[in-house]
């Protein structure tokens, strides 16, 4: 996933749209226009729901040829 944080207007639509709930808005960090933006936790399935719902075309989605095995500590706090 590539997130064009500068294009984001912080609307939060992607957060609710994400089935595995691996997107999370920043709290204090903002882009140069002053908007909060999403960050990605481990567990993305490449389903493109975020890209489809995003009004500001912030997401570029890649699918790994072979799913990535991430160490357990990278799974965040979910």
């Amino acid at each position: 996933m590539v997130i064009d944080v500068e294009a984001c207007k912080g609307c939060d639509l992607c957060i609710d749209a994400c089935p595995p709930r691996v997107l999370e808005m920043t709290v204090h960090e903002v882009n140069t226009r002053g908007y909060r933006y999403p960050r990605l936790l481990a567990g993305c399935t490449g389903c493109q729901a975020c890209a489809q719902i995003c009004p500001d075309f912030v997401f570029q989605v890649y699918k790994y040829d072979t799913p990535l095995e991430l160490p357990l500590e990278d799974q965040g706090q979910q």
């Binding site: 570029q60 890649y62 790994y64 072979t66």
Partner: peptide, 13 residues
């Protein structure tokens, strides 16, 4: 998430 992945991957969206 600031650049495309290093591992082999296909752009899907």
């Amino acid at each position: 998430t600031d650049s495309p992945p290093q591992e082999p991957a296909a752009l899907v969206d």
